[in-house]
Simulated scan of single mutants.
Amino acid sequence: MLNFKNTPHLQALIFLFIAMISMQSSGSLAKILFGQFPVLTVSVMRLLLGSLILAVFFKIWRVDFKSVNWKSVATYGIALAGMNALFYLSIARLPLGIAVSFEFIGPLSVALFHARQKFDFVWVGLAILGMFLLFPFDQAAQSLDPIGIAYALGAGACWAMYIISGQKPTGISGNHTVCLGMFIGMLCLIPIAIYAGMPFAVFEPSNFVYFIALAVLASALPFSLEMMALRSLTPLVFGTLTSLEPAIAALSGFVFLGEKLLWTQWLALSVIIAASIGCTVTTNRAKNKLEN
């Protein structure tokens, strides 16, 4: 029987895959909520409820706040806020899979920066090809909202900062870092959301339950799992494996929102998955050679 405690790398990969599925599935729920509430309101509620859920679950009151590296936590929280808000603003204007494709430029840049072996560039190159194929060049390319694309690229830059800041020591556990980071991110966004018009209807029980579900699927669960995964994965592996995000997002949009995919985009899913598997295999082999 496989002992996960003795295989932290495999455990980290499983955590990351669950986080990606949870995150991208929640994107479909968020797009449904956009029909009733402002985008920034949905973003703020996601971070607020996510941070409160984690605060209770991980007993935030037990943290020694004197030992917290607030600079690192604040950087992480700002990255979360930017990634969250800009991504939601982008999917309000673009199909889910296309938005994530543009956003993925951020983690892909991190992966490319840390590439060292020749196969690293092969897998990153495949991920780029997959992202290229995911773009609908032969259909409605002109109809893509340029503001939505700009939002997605901004979310990608915040995603890159999220990966880097998530690996810096904060003086507390990863779960407590996520909790405090989400709360800081919420504090950054809530004045803007209130100014833009945050309806009180979000707290009505019939609506509130959907925001709780969104907070769990989009924040509390994936951010906690990603934080644990970042402790055992290199930036290269994390950045390349997240190339699965556009594929999962495209499938989620197809299943839950009826967003159709072209044949080239289905091909893109296969290419992106191949890059993720290849990156995992070659990195593990290189790691084993160093240890033996």
Rank of each mutant, 00 (worst) to 15 (best):
P222K: 02
F119Q: 15
M131Q: 12
L40R: 08
A201S: 14
V56W: 06
L187S: 14
D120Q: 02
A286V: 06
N84S: 04
S22I: 02
F65L: 07
M227D: 01
S165P: 02
S109N: 07
V100C: 05
V209R: 15
Q139I: 13
A127G: 02
S243H: 02
G106E: 01
L16C: 05
N292Q: 13
H9S: 14
F208M: 11
R231N: 08
S252D: 05
A218V: 04
A160V: 03
L52V: 12
G239H: 01
H114Q: 09
H176S: 15
K118N: 12
S270K: 15
A12N: 04
H176T: 11
T41H: 11
T75L: 12
S51N: 07
L2C: 09
V178W: 01
R93A: 07
M83D: 01
Q117E: 12
P169S: 01
V281K: 13
V281Y: 13
E103Y: 09
A79E: 00
S28Q: 07
W159N: 00
W263G: 09
G156Y: 02
P191W: 06
S109C: 11
A220K: 02
A247M: 12
G125V: 00
I172R: 01
M83S: 03
S90P: 04
C158D: 00
P8G: 02
A268E: 07
W263I: 14
F34H: 15
L129W: 03
F58K: 08
P95E: 03
T170S: 08
A274I: 05
A160G: 06
G174R: 02
I248S: 14
F137R: 12
T280A: 13
R46P: 10
G171V: 00
N175I: 07
S276H: 04
W263T: 13
Y195W: 15
Y210H: 14
A229M: 00
N207S: 14
D138T: 15
L126F: 03
F137E: 07
P136A: 09
A218N: 08
K287F: 13
L214F: 06
F203L: 15
G27S: 13
L189V: 03
I21P: 04
L267G: 08
T264K: 12
M228H: 11
T234D: 03
P246E: 09
C279P: 04
G97T: 01
T264E: 11
